[in-house]
């Protein structure tokens, strides 16, 4: 697994996106500071609410653009035949890539979360400290961690099945972004459980990556997300067997 983690770490794009996300957070924190200089509580709430918008978007971009690419890169470069005839080029490599991706997702959440903490601390108005909102911040970070890992797994299975990175970005990215847009839609005002839009709002990992538990029909989502991941995993296994890659 170490070699797969090293491959991720060697990707310049990963570090570029991470750095851009943190710089963007720096800008936002600066404007928050200017706006709410005399309302430190609001400033702190915004800092603790990092995962709600900028954080969750940054993480999703990292996952979709960089982390899942490993599942289609062999086919794109034509190296798949060589890889699949190597002793550990099938099942073990597949599991190692999944493992390495999960590690990198956790690492990304940690870096973004920590980065937000540090940036918010240095930009904060005098006498205000993030520790005042530490508990909710840690809670939302942990939820993001769970959602991020789940989103990575689901997206990587999709990428593995379609064996096409842009297609996987569309399939996973579109519903993910749609969930944000639902909040600005008319239909959101009287959303009923099990409506299509309700499903798209809560069922695409976005809420979890935004650091929020889903409070509407939670039992259903406790079943839905594991089933979604297991279902996609099974599909990926099926396709790999069909392609003789397992």
């Amino acid at each position: 697994m170490t070699s797969e983690i090293k491959r991720y770490a060697a990707k310049a794009l990963y570090w570029m996106i991470l750095a851009t996300a943190l710089v963007a957070r720096g800008f936002l924190a600066y404007f928050d500071f200017k706006e709410f200089k005399y309302e430190p509580d609001v400033y702190l709430d915004l800092a603790a609410d990092y995962w709600n918008k900028a954080g969750s978007l940054s993480l999703a971009i990292l996952i979709l653009i960089v982390l899942i690419h490993q599942f289609s890169i062999d086919k794109e470069t034509g190296a798949d035949t060589v890889i699949h005839t190597a002793r550990y080029g099938r099942r073990r490599l597949y599991l190692e890539r999944l493992g390495a991706g999960v590690v990198m997702t956790v690492f990304s959440v940690a870096i973004l979360g920590l980065g937000n903490y540090v940036i918010s601390y240095f930009m904060s108005p005098v006498g205000v400290h993030m520790r005042n909102v530490l508990a909710p911040y840690i809670e939302s970070t942990l939820i993001t961690l769970v959602g991020g890992v789940g989103f990575f797994l689901a997206a990587s299975f999709v990428c593995d099945v379609v064996a096409n990175h842009p297609a996987a970005i569309c399939i996973c990215g579109f519903p993910y972004v749609f969930s944000y847009l639902v909040y600005s839609m008319e239909v959101n005002k009287n959303l009923k459980p099990f409506d299509l839009v309700w499903f798209l709002k809560y069922g695409t990992f976005t809420e979890l990556v935004r650091g929020r538990w889903i409070t509407t029909v939670p039992v259903f989502w406790c079943i839905w997300y594991p089933m979604l991941i297991i279902g996609l995993f099974a599909l990926s296994i099926y396709k790999r067997k069909e392609r003789k890659q397992l």
């Binding site: 890169i73 062999d74 470069t77 034509g78 035949t81 060589v82």
Partner: peptide
């Protein structure tokens, strides 16, 4: 194995 259209990174 060396395939006909050998791919690489």
């Amino acid at each position: 194995y060396l395939p006909q259209d050998f791919g690489f990174y």
